[in-house]
Amino acid sequence: MFFSISPKTKRSELFDREREMNELKRATDNDRLIVLDGLRRTGKTSLLKVFLNDTENFKAFIDCRHFVRGNVIDSVEFNNALIDSIEKETKTGKFRKLLESISSMTIRDVQLSFEKSRRQRNLASVLKKLDTTLERKSVKFIVALDEAQNLRFYGKGGRDFLNLLAYTFDNLKNIIFILTGSEVGLLFDFLKLEDPDEPLYARYITEITLKRFSREESMQFLIAGLDEIGVNFNKSDLEKVITTLDGVVGYLAIFGYEVYKNGPDFETALERAGVMAKGLVKKEIDSLLARSINYGYALKAVAFGMERYSQIKKYIEANFGPIHDSTLSNILNGLVKQSFLEISFSKSMKSYSIPDPITSSFCASMNLKQ
């Protein structure tokens, strides 16, 4: 169903995204390291899961958020989970048939890497074994890591995982990594592609960006989803939904799901969708505020239309007290990297905006104490 609020897994559940699906297909045919990025709730996980279910390649999927404890990812726990996912795939009938077609290989050959104690299993060795297995076939193994910016907490600053990516890129031609990230700046900060002292320097990465729906695409999505559940609204009502929720497919799906679950009361569905969407945003903003109240000050300023650095600083100091230039610069940079703010330029002047309308509305209504 188009309006299901959990990540999609079947092609029939995914509205449009033909271009992005084709881009992923071309990238996995030709490239080795792929970044799928975009703002929150634009459907990255759904797109990735649908693609993985459609591909002829073998695959393993890990949600990196699951392994963050404070500011650390236990590398042994993460490696074991990924190896378990790989092992599960190698036990499928499809993989067994592949081995049977290679006269010198048996399932035992692949499982050798899995049979060590859980603390001794080595992820690089497992990937190397897989690469050797696939070497004589036109099929690859995709390792998909959702919300991969969290890998900056892997071990000591994530460098060990960057080394693994570099090793795989250089040596294992049948292994493909797909990394998704909704905190785009943090993801690329972690990858350090332009730093000559870092492992991935000079490695080519394919970036695929998932964008919000246009107004026309949003209308088409709502009409298709409502038709699927047997409900009709007039176009002016749907225009109001799009104005309120923008082209963020996650929010539009929440509206549709409310209609599906509670009936075709337009005003109630839109109101309940807004409440649920703000609940998601609140959780994210609360996490930011727990780190620094200054994030809230800056977001509130931008939500009230303060676009320039000087305007934001003046607003904060008039309403909440003094803030150092260096502190504000770090706060704004952090919000951009975490995709809460976007930057645009007009006549060489930098402006900040909140790209998500629900986030903007929520931030404008925040009651922040000094």
Rank of each mutant, 00 (worst) to 15 (best):
R203N: 13
Y204A: 14
I205P: 15
I205C: 13
T206R: 09
T206I: 04
T206C: 12
E207Y: 05
I208W: 06
T209V: 14
T209Q: 07
L210H: 12
L210T: 12
L210K: 08
K211Y: 13
R212N: 10
R212K: 12
R212M: 15
F213D: 10
F213G: 02
F213K: 00
S214H: 12
S214N: 06
R215H: 04
R215I: 05
E216C: 05
E216S: 10
E216Y: 11
E216F: 01
E216Q: 14
E217P: 01
E217Q: 08
E217G: 09
E217T: 05
M219P: 09
Q220D: 07
Q220Y: 00
Q220F: 10
I223H: 08
I223P: 10
I223K: 12
A224Y: 06
A224W: 01
G225L: 01
G225Y: 02
G225V: 04
G225C: 02
G225D: 00
L226P: 07
L226K: 01
L226I: 04
L226M: 07
D227V: 05
D227E: 05
E228K: 06
E228T: 04
E228N: 03
I229W: 15
I229H: 14
I229S: 12
I229Q: 11
I229C: 10
I229R: 05
I229A: 15
G230Y: 03
G230T: 04
G230K: 11
G230N: 15
V231D: 05
V231I: 08
V231W: 04
N234F: 03
N234G: 07
K235D: 04
S236I: 14
S236D: 13
D237C: 14
D237L: 11
D237K: 07
E239R: 02
E239T: 05
E239I: 10
E239A: 04
E239F: 12
K240E: 15
K240W: 13
K240Y: 08
K240R: 13
V241H: 01
V241W: 00
I242R: 14
I242K: 12
T243N: 14
T243G: 13
T243M: 11
T243F: 13
T243Y: 15
L245D: 10
L245R: 10
L245V: 03
L245C: 14
L245K: 08
D246M: 07
D246S: 14
D246G: 05
D246C: 11
G247K: 03
V248T: 14
V249N: 01
V249M: 07
V249C: 02
G250H: 05
G250N: 14
Y251V: 09
Y251P: 03
Y251G: 14
Y251N: 07
Y251E: 11
L252H: 10
L252D: 02
A253V: 00
A253C: 00
I254K: 01
F255P: 11
F255Y: 02
G256F: 00
G256H: 01
G256Y: 00
G256R: 00
Y257K: 02
